[in-house]
């Protein structure tokens, strides 16, 4: 499954980052690397973007960007 399908309150581990280019680079730089633990904290009032916790900090990204992150649920 992909990160954008995760429900609020669920935890998953990153499998790999798909796609290419700058967004992918950014996701990797921000610590979304294979094996990283991601907790979906909340969604914005309008349903998008999403807020995740990883490596001890909060990160927000849009669902279109989260689609590129494939994850495995714990």
């Amino acid at each position: 499954m992909h990160l954008d399908e995760l429900k609020v309150g669920e935890t998953a581990f990153v499998e790999k980052i798909e796609g290419e280019g700058r967004v992918r680079r950014r996701l990797l730089d921000m610590g979304i690397t294979p094996g990283a633990e991601i907790y979906l904290r909340k969604k914005a009032p309008l349903g998008d973007p999403i807020e995740i916790t990883l490596r001890g900090y909060e990160l927000t990204l849009r669902k279109t960007e989260a689609k590129a992150v494939s994850v495995v649920k714990r």
């Binding site: 967004v23 950014r26 900090y57 909060e58 990160l59 927000t60 990204l61």
Partner: peptide
């Protein structure tokens, strides 16, 4: 523009 942003404490 992509929107991948830290939400600082």
């Amino acid at each position: 523009p992509p929107f991948v942003m830290e939400l600082p404490s």
